[in-house]
Design a protein around this nucleic acid. Structure first.
Lengths: 158, 158
DNA sequence: ATTGAAAGAGTCTCAGT
DNA sequence: ACTGAGACTCTTTCAAT
């Protein structure tokens, strides 16, 4: 895994480009970055072997699939030490797509994706509220997603 | 774009599989799902043309790139009507990777990715607090990400 | 480390079913 | 609509620099 690599500008450019759109061929990306396709290949292989690049995914428009309700839920725990157990229970609920253990207002913070408000209500009332250790929750429903993008990895030119 | 398609089980299986890992070949995915590689190809093309599949991305381990601080920030606005203007300003800050307009406790909700606490402090104090329309913010720092996964798209068998 | 070319593997198209 | 095979493109390897 992590081999303590020093990445150069080209590595960062490749990551930035392919993290946004991996459909470009090595030859074309090479043209864009003024190196050969072979070099792109070597760099990507290095990035994969070092664990920086972890895979490739199709991106999906979940609204087009009928998932219209994106929600953020702050969770108050009775005791923070119950975190592991609660996380294990929450992992069983497929509508919860992301869970973080946090400092600040809430103990835990979840993102929930549902088809409609009825389904959300079901997840919040019938599932979340029945988990031992959860004191209460606060729900934020997303009315609009302004943007959702990658970190800008290319700033430093090492 | 959205052509009002009726997707069948195979479509959902393809989405579920490739949204998690797109490195499998059409031939191999076909084997797994008991159809030919050609059929996988036709289905994926249909999903792309209909706008359900929006692209392909390399996934990156941002911690391995030195981004150690993942933060969620709830934003209180002076007036909700200032949403558009504030969003435009927030979009200029590269460390903000996601922004949603929400109902509930906060007016807006952002995810911020930084290299370290100093950088986070800079974003929160020098950037966020100077934006007209933002009343105050509440910060949740992620200590641990329990999971981060896709919606389970394959339930209904149409 | 990068290159360019050859070998291997995958995608894409299409005629047949 | 699915299949299998041929055409085409991309990835991968490697000898040379």
């Amino acid at each position: 895994m992590s081999q303590k690599l020093n990445l150069d500008k080209l590595d960062y450019q490749i990551i930035q480009s392919m993290a946004e759109n991996a459909e470009i061929s090595y030859a074309d990306l090479g043209k864009k970055l003024f190196v050969s396709g072979g070099t792109i290949h070597v760099r990507i292989k290095k990035l994969q072997e070092s664990g920086i690049v972890t895979g490739t995914r199709l991106t999906v428009d979940i609204k087009a699939l009928g998932f219209d309700v994106i929600t953020f839920v702050g969770i108050y725990l009775q005791k923070s030490s119950m975190y592991e157990d609660v996380a294990k229970e929450l992992a069983k609920i497929p509508q919860i797509v992301r869970l973080n253990y946090t400092t600040g207002t809430y103990s835990m913070f979840a993102e929930i994706v549902c088809k409609n408000i009825q389904q959300l209500k079901h997840v919040l009332h019938d599932k979340l509220q029945n988990i031992k250790g959860i004191e209460r929750t606060e729900t934020l429903i997303s009315l609009e997603e302004s943007f959702n993008r990658n970190v800008q990895v290319l700033e430093e030119e090492v």
